Simulated assay, not measured.
Amino acid sequence: MKKICLLVIVSIMAAMLSACGGETEKEENRNNLEFTVVSEDRLPDELKEILDQKKESAFKLTYADEGYLYICVGYGKQESGGYSVTVNELYETDNAIYVNTNLLGPKAGSSPGTSPSYPYIVLKIEFRDKTVVFD
């Protein structure tokens, strides 16, 4: 009976250790990507049209053009201006590209105005034929 309990405990510990090892391996294969934030006036015309059609609602999309991949994240209609979008992470693994952004509201004490805004960000990277995962 003691041998069976010991075998079960050793098996559980081995499984836990192998799971931890896999996580470390994933972290090692993670490469931060260099990117450019693209202003609206520098976007390809077709992408401008797509973003204009989608801006009312939140969106996440990619667009490829001339050797570049554009990663776009929009937060939909906001009741005022003064919003900005930040990039928390943009990295690549063996299987995918991961992007994480955040919407920041108007700064305290600022006068954001009364006109609605449509905050979004477009990141430009060299083209990679990988799935983009939006976190």
Rank of each mutant, 00 (worst) to 15 (best):
A64M: 09
F127E: 04
V133R: 03
E89A: 10
N31R: 08
R42P: 00
V133Q: 02
A64S: 15
I71W: 03
L6E: 10
E56D: 14
R128N: 01
T24E: 09
V132T: 07
V10A: 14
E27L: 14
E49F: 05
M1P: 05
A58V: 01
L17C: 14
S57Y: 15
Y91C: 09
V133A: 01
Q78V: 01
Y98K: 04
D52P: 00
A96P: 02
K55G: 07
Q78M: 13
S110Q: 07
C5S: 05
D45H: 06
K55T: 03
K48M: 14
I12Y: 06
M16K: 06
K55E: 14
G113C: 05
T114F: 12
S115D: 12
A58N: 11
N100V: 02
V132R: 05
N88K: 10
A15N: 11
E28A: 10
I50N: 02
S117V: 04
N102H: 13
G21W: 13
Y75W: 09
V73A: 12
G109N: 10
I12M: 13
L43M: 08
R42M: 13
C72K: 01
G76C: 11
E89I: 01
S111G: 00
S117C: 04
N29Y: 13
E92Y: 04
Y75S: 01
V99D: 03
E28F: 06
L33G: 04
K2V: 13
T93I: 06
L103S: 12
S11A: 15
N31C: 02
I4E: 13
G81C: 06
D45W: 01
Q78F: 03
L61T: 15
V122H: 01
D94A: 13
P112M: 08
Q53M: 14
L47W: 11
L90A: 07
T101I: 07
C20H: 05
V73K: 07
N100H: 12
S80D: 07
D41T: 11
K124W: 02
T93G: 02
S115H: 04
T101M: 05
E56G: 01
L6G: 00
D41S: 14
E56R: 12
N32H: 07
Y118A: 00
N102Q: 14
E28T: 08
S57K: 15
E79G: 06
E34T: 12
K130V: 03
G21C: 12
C72F: 08
D52W: 09
F127W: 02
F59I: 07
A96D: 15
A19P: 00
F127D: 01
L103A: 13
F59E: 08
S39Q: 12
E79P: 00
Y83Q: 01
E25G: 00
D65L: 02
A96K: 14
L103H: 09
A64C: 02
E34Y: 10
D129K: 11
M13C: 12
C20M: 13
L104H: 08
A15L: 15
